[in-house]
Design a binder for these strands. Structure first.
Length: 433
RNA sequence: GUGCUCGUAGCUCAGUUGGUUAGAGCGUCGGUUUGUGGAACCGAAGGUCGUGGGUUCAAGACCCAUCGGGCACCCCA
């Protein structure tokens, strides 16, 4: 029985060309967030299972987390998300850290579920968090940064929108303004989350099922729809305008506008699944009708650090997954053609392998990435190998070249060929972008 | 976890109502002077038809199971 060549279900092999793309994605993210002063951290891929039981959301822990019992009878989870881990790390050094804390990481995460487009079992996710800022300045910074990441990848503002909502406002709306009880609010939250996936009539039907007779009589469903259909804060019922969360949202929109984030919109139907969000939440949506989905999001979770028995720390963060990002960039034609790391391919002519080593070392010492064809094949085969690999330069080294100290350098893109001293070769190839 | 759908060479696919030794294009490898290009020409390798059962004189095709991909649920980091 032959062994399977497939990678584990829902996980990917990264061949060099795939890894090259991943490096490009990660480096771009790193450049942007570090420009905002964020520092990289990391942590183990394994965590005690209890870490996720507290606040992540039951379904995620029970059904979508890889778990096992280790040899010491400990319940262990492969991390399904990074937020509990980073909260643990902050809590552990709560007193000695200097705030505001700006941290990021690009961990691989695992979730046990049936794979489909944009959702695999293993993915990498940029996690960015700011700890220690209670005001909307934190949301402003984090959302601006998310926007900056998108534009740095070449996305235009008409390719995506940033939807904003406030958990506090939703809770107030459902429980105080519309007078739903706790259980109704829970069910409604889930239902509202699916609002745009089901038809309007199905939605109102399912809302109606949740109402009591008195609520039906009071037309609670109409009041609910009036709120949910608001496309801006100004469209909310007037009696809500003085609410603190509305004030905060207003302030946030002003800040975003002032820093050029013009594609942020208010969406009262935005919920997000995690239980730990406490206030403002946001999601970045692809506007492409073919792929009208949430790509990534985040929000404020002020309570998580405090669960570790220390004073709580106000926190805002988001996670950006590599799979959804790649889908987005691919469908908007924003993925660049990437060259291999190798700058130059040496074609050896005749039995020159040994004597060519000095030249190779000279180029490598000068910082060039140099590979050679050491097969002894005919020159046309050697040259074709470089072409197929996408390497930009080929250098011919034969008897004549070694004698004269002049080498034939060929730019495989322009097909131009010149004879150069090795110093000149180094100079020319180093000019690569 | 549920439902639908697909799986033939490295890739993209043909393969008639079940009927001989399963095909093409591209790619790969070799050759057409071992000092130079993706072309052209010649040639070769490469498939237990995802896997395992079953029906049949006969299965790539029909049935069941299973693995993998895609889509929709569930859920969403």
């Amino acid at each position: 029985m032959a062994l399977s060549k497939q990678p584990y279900k829902g996980a990917r092999d990264f061949y060099p060309e795939d890894k090259r793309l991943q490096k490009y994605l990660f480096n771009t993210m790193r450049n942007v967030v570090e420009r905002f002063g964020y520092e990289e951290y990391d942590a183990p891929i394994l965590e005690p299972l209890e870490l996720y039981k507290a606040k992540t959301g039951e379904e995620i822990v029970n059904e979508q987390t890889y778990t096992f019992t280790d040899r010491g009878d400990r319940q262990v989870a492969i991390r399904p998300e990074m937020t509990p881990t980073v909260s643990r790390m902050v809590a552990a050094k709560r007193q000695e850290l200097t705030y505001p804390l700006r941290w990021y990481s690009i961990p691989n995460l695992w979730r046990y579920e049936r794979p489909q487009r944009g959702r695999l079992r293993e993915h990498w996710q940029l996690n960015v968090d700011i700890f220690g800022v209670a005001g909307p300045e934190a949301e402003h910074e984090v959302i601006s940064m998310a926007d900056s990441i998108m534009t740095t990848f070449g996305a235009k503002h008409d390719m995506y929108t940033i939807r904003l909502n406030s958990r506090k406002l939703s809770d107030y709306l459902l429980q105080e303004h519309l007078k739903f009880d706790h259980e109704q609010s829970r069910s409604l939250t889930k239902l509202i989350d699916r609002m745009h996936k089901i038809s309007a009539s199905d939605f109102s039907e399912q809302v109606d099922d949740l109402l009591t007779d008195t609520q039906r009589h009071a037309k609670a469903d109409k009041a609910l729809m009036a709120v949910l259909n608001a496309t801006s804060i100004a469209e909310l019922p007037p009696e809500l305008h003085d609410h603190k969360s509305v004030e905060e949202l207003k302030k946030l929109f002003e800040l975003l506008k002032s820093s050029g984030v013009t594609n942020a919109v208010f969406d009262p139907s935005l919920m997000r699944g995690f239980d730990y969000y406490t206030d403002i939440v946001f999601e970045v949506f692809d506007t492409d009708p073919e792929n009208n989905r949430s790509m990534f999001g985040g929000g404020r979770y002020d309570g998580l650090v405090g669960l570790f028995g220390v004073d709580s720390v106000p926190t805002v963060g988001f996670g950006l997954g590599d799979v959804t990002l790649q889908n987005f960039l691919g469908s908007h034609k924003l993925l660049p053609a990437l060259r291999p790391e190798t700058d130059l391919w040496v074609v050896l002519i005749g039995a020159t392998y040994e004597r060519a080593q000095g030249v190779l070392n000279e180029m490598r010492d000068a910082g060039l990435n140099v590979a050679l064809d050491s097969t002894g094949r005919k020159t046309d085969k050697q040259l074709k190998a470089a072409l197929k690999k996408g390497i930009k330069y080929a250098l011919f080294i034969g008897e004549k070249e070694l004698e004269k100290g002049e080498y034939t350098l060929k730019n495989l893109e322009t097909v131009k060929e010149t004879k150069q001293s090795i110093d000149e070769v180094i100079k020319l190839v180093s000019e690569r972008a």
